[in-house]
C-alpha cells in the first residue's frame, strides 16, 4: 500500500484527466488501470455554462481521490489563490502545486514553489509539489511542510522518459522515507517501470495515456508496468556485472574428449 498524507491507496498510478478523445474514454482508462487518484484543474467557465458541473459529476462518480492542480500559475500569489479556490470547490486539502518558471520547458520555478508550499502547508493544505530532481530544493520543500515530493523526469508532455536516472537514484537515496512520485515526462510503460525499479513510490501520467491511439489500453499497460516495476524493486534487483556468469551449474558437467 502507498501512504500519502495518511491516505492509503493500492494503485501506484496517478492519472491526469486532460486531453482524452472523449469523457467515456477517460472513464474507461480510469476503470481499466484501477488508478485511485486523478488530477483536475480549475478554469474559467463560460457564463451560464454547465460544463464544469458535468465534469465534476463524472469525476465524483469514479469514486477516486481528487488531486486538484495549480497548473498555469507563475507566481506565489496566483498559486496560493488557485489552491484556495480549488479547496473551496473540490473539498480536499490535497493540492498538486505547480509554479511554472519557463514557458518552453514548463520547468518549475522552484523558489516560488518553496514559498507557496510554505504558505499552503501553513493553511492546512497537503501539498504535492511538482519539482525538479534537485536534492536541495527537495529538502527545502520538506522543511516547508511537504510530505510528498514529485520530481519531473523530463518536460511535461514531452514523452522523453527519464533524462537523468542518476539524479532520480540520488533523490531516492537521499529521501528514503518520503513518498516520491515521478510527475511529468513519462512516455512509455517502460519509462514508468524504470523509475519504479529505482524504488519510486508512484508515477503521475497524463499525456502518454490520453494521447495514445487507445488510451484505455495504454492506461492498463502503464498500470501493469508500474506494478511490475514495483514488484521488481521489492524483490531486489541484481546489479549488472562486467563479465558473464554461467547460470547452469558447472560442477557435474560431462567432459567429452
Amino acid at each position: 500500500m502507498l501512504n500519502l498524507y495518511n491516505t492509503s491507496v493500492s494503485s501506484r498510478m496517478l492519472l491526469g484527466t486532460a486531453r482524452y478523445p472523449s469523457p467515456s474514454v477517460l472513464d474507461e482508462a480510469v476503470r481499466l488501470s484501477a488508478c485511485e487518484i486523478v488530477t483536475v484543474s480549475l478554469r474559467r467557465e463560460t457564463a451560464g455554462g454547465k460544463t464544469g458541473g458535468a465534469f465534476f459529476e463524472r469525476i465524483r462518480a469514479m469514486g477516486v481521490h481528487i488531486l486538484p492542480n495549480t497548473a498555469g500559475c507563475h507566481s506565489v500569489s496566483e498559486a496560493v489563490l488557485t489552491a484556495n479556490m480549488a479547496r473551496s470547490v473540490f473539498g480536499t486539502d490535497w493540492i498538486k502545486l505547480e509554479v511554472i518558471g519557463n514557458h518552453d520547458t514548463l520547468q518549475p520555478e522552484v523558489f516560488a514553489l518553496v514559498e507557496a508550499a510554505r504558505i499552503l502547508s501553513g493553511e492546512g493544505f497537503k501539498v504535492f509539489p511538482y519539482t525538479t530532481d534537485d536534492l536541495v530544493v527537495g529538502e527545502r520543500l520538506l522543511e516547508a511542510g511537504c510530505g510528498v515530493l514529485m520530481p519531473w523526469c523530463a518536460p511535461i508532455g514531452s514523452a522523453m522518459g527519464p533524462q537523468n536516472l542518476n539524479a532520480l537514484r540520488s533523490m531516492r537515496a537521499h529521501f528514503p522515507d518520503t513518498p516520491l512520485i515521478v510527475d511529468a515526462g513519462i512516455g512509455r510503460p517502460s519509462h514508468a517501470m524504470a523509475v519504479m525499479e529505482l524504488g519510486y513510490d508512484a508515477v503521475l501520467l497524463n499525456t502518454a495515456v490520453a494521447g495514445a491511439a487507445d488510451p484505455a489500453l495504454m492506461a492498463l499497460a502503464f498500470a501493469t508496468g508500474i506494478e511490475a516495476g514495483r514488484m521488481g524493486f521489492e524483490a531486489g534487483l541484481l546489479e549488472p556485472r562486467d563479465m558473464a556468469v554461467p547460470s547452469t551449474p558447472v560442477i557435474g558437467q560431462a567432459v567429452f574428449t
Binding site: 486531453r19 488530477t39 483536475v40 480549475l42 478554469r43 464544469g52 492542480n69 508532455g157 499525456t207
Partner: peptide, 10 residues
C-alpha cells in the same frame, strides 16, 4: 472578478 469551474487537468 474570476468565476472558475472544475475542468480536466494533468
Amino acid at each position: 472578478i474570476e468565476i472558475l469551474s472544475p475542468m480536466e487537468g494533468g
